[in-house]
């Protein structure tokens, strides 16, 4: 047989397998839970004392809400749970399930295999994340005083897709390095938890702010967080943040390909 490998068909096939699987269900349920919970909390949370109410008083409702949603909730949820969920067993799963010999006996290169795993994870995430965030926009707009800035909201969503790309690149490397799926997930979860800690605490000290600026999480929440200062959405800074997040991911992707290429399977 003399044919080119249908790369896009491979990716779509795996993408739909991810979406219509237990992990896709977990991701969807989790996401809707968060939207529901935040929508339920919103009317009363701003009346209570504490950090959240203080921020609501200091900044515009739109910015305060963005901070709560993106910086407070999603940057943690996406990076430590949802993104790892889609790729933690991408490579280790095929090894432990003894599917690797059958798959790699196909006319695909090892680089294509790694890119396929990453692309299908990213596509599955994007196809779930953006529509759910779209639904969230309509739910939250009615609840936030003055409504939500649609451009800022969706620009941040796109930065979060890029953040997921970074997280998945890291998790894919872990999956290539470890043999067991559970260890892969635990390692990914642990590493991402540590990585997002600095950004989660960036408003508390200069040292933590400086550390946060060394993580892609900071750039993903650049327009959504009032810390260290609010930033208006502009095209060049937006593209800059996007590029920076992607650049964070590339070394991990390169290392994954390098590791996988050298391996005896």
């Amino acid at each position: 047989m003399d044919s080119q490998v249908n790369f896009s068909a491979m990716i779509w096939h795996r993408t739909f397998r991810i979406i219509f699987s237990l992990r896709g269900l977990i991701a969807i349920l989790f996401s809707f839970y968060f939207i529901g919970a935040i929508a339920w909390m919103l009317p009363t949370i701003t009346e209570q004392g504490g950090v959240i109410a203080e921020i609501w008083k200091t900044f515009s409702s739109d910015l305060a809400f963005s901070w709560l949603l993106f910086d407070g909730a999603l940057s943690k949820l996406v990076s430590i749970f949802i993104a790892p969920l889609f790729v933690f067993d991408a490579i280790s799963g095929d090894k432990t399930g003894e599917r690797m010999p059958i798959i790699m006996s196909r006319p695909i290169t090892r680089t294509q295999y790694v890119l396929m795993k990453l692309s299908s994870g990213m596509l599955a995430f994007t196809l779930l994340f953006l529509p759910i965030m779209g639904i969230g926009y309509f739910v939250f707009s009615g609840l936030v005083e003055g409504g939500l800035d649609v451009a800022n909201y969706f620009a941040t969503c796109i930065l979060f897709v890029a953040l997921a790309f970074f997280c998945m690149a890291v998790c894919l490397l872990i999956s290539a390095l470890v043999k067991k799926n559970l260890v892969s997930f635990l390692a990914a979860f642990g590493l991402m938890s540590i990585a997002m800690t600095a950004n989660a605490s960036k408003n508390t000290s200069d040292a933590l702010l400086a550390s946060a600026q060394l993580t892609p999480h900071y750039y993903a929440t650049y327009f959504a967080s009032p810390f260290p200062e609010p930033h208006d959405l502009e095209i060049m800074p937006f593209l800059g943040c996007l590029v920076v997040i992607i650049l964070f991911a590339l070394p991990f992707l390169y290392l994954t390909i390098l590791k996988f290429k050298k391996e005896d399977l």
Binding site: D2, S3, E98, R99, P101, I102, S105, R106, P107, T109
Partner: peptide, 16 residues
Amino acid sequence: VEARKHIGYLPESYGM
């Protein structure tokens, strides 16, 4: 890659 277009492989142990 080119070679594998012409190969059908059945491993000794494999998962599905």
